[in-house]
Structures are given as C-alpha cells and as structure tokens.
C-alpha cells in the first residue's frame, strides 16, 4: 500500500513529500497554519506559512515569528507538492489548506462554518479525494438558526437590559466570536465597551474588516459611562473582581454549546445565545458532500459518531485520527488575568 499524502504523526499532520506540517502541535521546521486559534497556531515553529490576514493575527498573538503570508487561491510549491489556502469562514483570516501531489488532492479544514458571518470570506468548497474535517458539533442535536435571528435576540436582550438600567455583558472568545458579535450589534442602542483582551484582537481584525467603533475599558473609565451599555469580555472574566465593578449587569454567552441546557446552567449566565463559528450537523454533511471526496478523516469533536454515520449511512471511507485540536474550547479557556488586561 502506498503511503498517504498526509500522515498523522506525534507532531501533527505531516506531508512527507514536502517535509512540512499542517497545524502541528509540537515545534517543527515548517508549519502551514489554517487560523489563529491557539490549538492550531502554536508557538515554537521555525517557519510559518499562512494567509496574510492570519499572519497579522499570529504576529500579534505569538510575537516575533518568521511568517510568510499568502493570498487565498495562491499556489505555493514545495518539493513538487502544491499547497493553496481557501476561505474556511471560521474566523477572520481562517483557511482550509489544499494539498496536491501526483494528481491526488487532500483538503484539511482546520475549523469552519458554512454560514457567511459578514466578517470573513465565506467557506469555499474545494474538490478533493480526501477531506480532513473537524466535527466539533458533529451531532444531529446541533442545528443552528440563521444568524440574523440570533442577533435580533441579542439586540433585543441588550435593549431590555438597558431599559431596566442594567449593563449587558457578553462573554465571547477574544478572536473571532467577539468581532462577529461586534459586527452585528446595533450601535444605535448604545456604546460597545471592550475588555483589553478583546480590544487587542479587534484592533488587528480592523485592518482587514470593517467593524463598528469600540471603547476600551481602562482603569480611568467612569462606571457611570458604562451603565446601560454593552461590554464584550472573555469568558474567563465571569465572576471576576474586574467585572463586578460594573454591577448591576446581565450576563450572556454566545456559543454553540449554549444549545445544551446543561451547558447554559453550568456557565451560570443569565442568557445563552446559540451562536457558533463551527458547522452544525447539516453543515458538516453539506461540506463533505460538496468536496466530492471518497475519504473523510475526522480530527476533533464527535469524531467516532460522525465518521460512523458517514461510513454506515452514506458509504464514505471514513475514519478518525487523534489530534490535539480542541475545537470550540471556550469551556476550557483559562481565566484571564483581569488585572493585567484591565489596566
């Protein structure tokens, strides 16, 4: 049996003919990176290749790295292997990576969603033989509503809080979810304040995406100015001393996990909005179908269940591989050092 074009090794997804890794989780010489979330873009590689939007994001997150930025659709040839980046629609700067060698084509998705979120170019189906896909929400229990409906709910919630004299606190992952919320919040309702970690990433994303204005909360921001307005903060600030200064407030989380009643209650937020940057059940199936592939490899999420469904019900050659990607890791995000970022 001939060797697969992409192999799953202890360091990451390895393309042997080219001698490069895709989203490796251990330090390597040359890494192709799908997007800027910390489980995909790790510190310590000698050389990075990624979309140039994501290059800006990674430089902000990882500091001084040797990174080469490319365009979507642009082909990079390494040892006769052709690599190209294609929009994944997950977060700003996120790509799928297409790998072609001797007529065989593989696509690695990183993370993705199908709905156009308004801040990143939408997911682009890429024809391939083998499709290496995430399936963070690969269960039929996950069915997203159109985002406009969710944003209407969020804006209504903000207005209600304001009418009751409460500040609205939205917890969101600092890269991606925060900017997506920002894009669709109604600036007519009031001022949008940000926590330092959110502002930090928003500043970078503004370079290539048009976003409404935000006000960074500093130690000099008067409490009275914030009241009735909205704060976007990382989930780790929930219950922190930093946040408690802004009472009275109502809290909400925006995440795919909010589809689960238990997750909503565990998060202990007043409202849970079901809003994810990952594909839902039907989105995953649609993406697989659109590639025209024969082989599907599930990397993270409900991998065993999703690949069994593809195998038994749809006749794909589907299996799982162990990786160190975490998908939507909001649940695991460690508490932010509020003191450091608030000053």
């Amino acid at each position: 049996m001939k060797k697969p074009l992409l192999a799953f090794t202890e360091k990451g997804i390895y393309c042997e003919p080219a001698g490069v890794y895709l989203d490796p989780w251990r330090p390597v010489n040359k890494a192709l990176i799908t997007h800027g979330h910390s489980d995909h873009a790790r510190w310590g590689h000698q050389q990075y290749i990624t979309h140039h939007h994501n290059k800006s994001i990674m430089e902000r997150r990882l500091g001084d790295i040797a990174a080469q930025g490319v365009d979507w659709g642009e082909t990079t040839v390494i040892n006769n292997v052709k690599f190209s980046f294609h929009p994944a629609g997950h977060i700003p700067g996120s790509s799928q990576i297409r790998v072609e060698h001797k007529g065989e084509v593989w696509v690695f998705t990183g993370d993705y969603k199908l709905e156009d979120d308004g801040i990143a170019p939408p997911f682009e189906p890429v024809k391939c033989n083998g499709f290496i896909t995430e399936c963070t929400f690969g269960l039929p229990a996950f069915n997203w509503r159109p985002q406009q409906e969710v944003f209407n709910d969020i804006n209504t919630w903000w207005k209600q809080n304001k009418a009751e004299g409460h500040t609205s606190v939205l917890f969101a992952y600092s890269l991606g979810k925060a900017q997506r919320l920002l894009k669709h919040l109604d600036p007519e309702t009031g001022t949008i304040f940000t926590h330092g970690a959110i502002e930090n990433m928003t500043e970078v994303v503004r370079r290539f995406t048009d976003l409404p204005p935000t006000t960074l909360i500093t130690k000099d921001t008067p409490k009275s100015e914030i009241r009735g307005n909205l704060i976007i903060a990382p989930p780790g600030t929930h219950g922190s001393v930093w946040l408690r200064k802004f009472a009275p407030y109502a809290t909400a989380s925006a995440s795919g996990w909010m589809a689960f009643r238990g997750a909503r209650r565990r998060r202990a937020v007043d409202r849970g909005f079901v809003l994810s940057d990952h594909a839902d059940w039907s989105g995953l199936l649609e993406a697989v179908k659109a590639t025209g592939c024969e082989t599907v490899v599930a990397t993270h999420g409900y991998t065993a269940i999703f690949s069994r469904y593809l195998r038994e019900e749809l006749g794909y050659h589907a299996y799982t591989e162990n990786t160190e990607y975490e998908g939507d890791s909001e649940e695991e995000e460690p508490p932010t050092n509020a003191k450091e970022t608030a000053s």
């Binding site: 996990w257 689960f260 009643r261």
Partner: peptide, 9 residues
C-alpha cells in the same frame, strides 16, 4: 457523562 448541568462532562 453527567446529567443536567453536567451534561457533556
């Protein structure tokens, strides 16, 4: 896996 608020954990 737990139930209720421990769903999925």
């Amino acid at each position: 896996r737990g139930h209720g608020r421990r769903t999925n954990l």
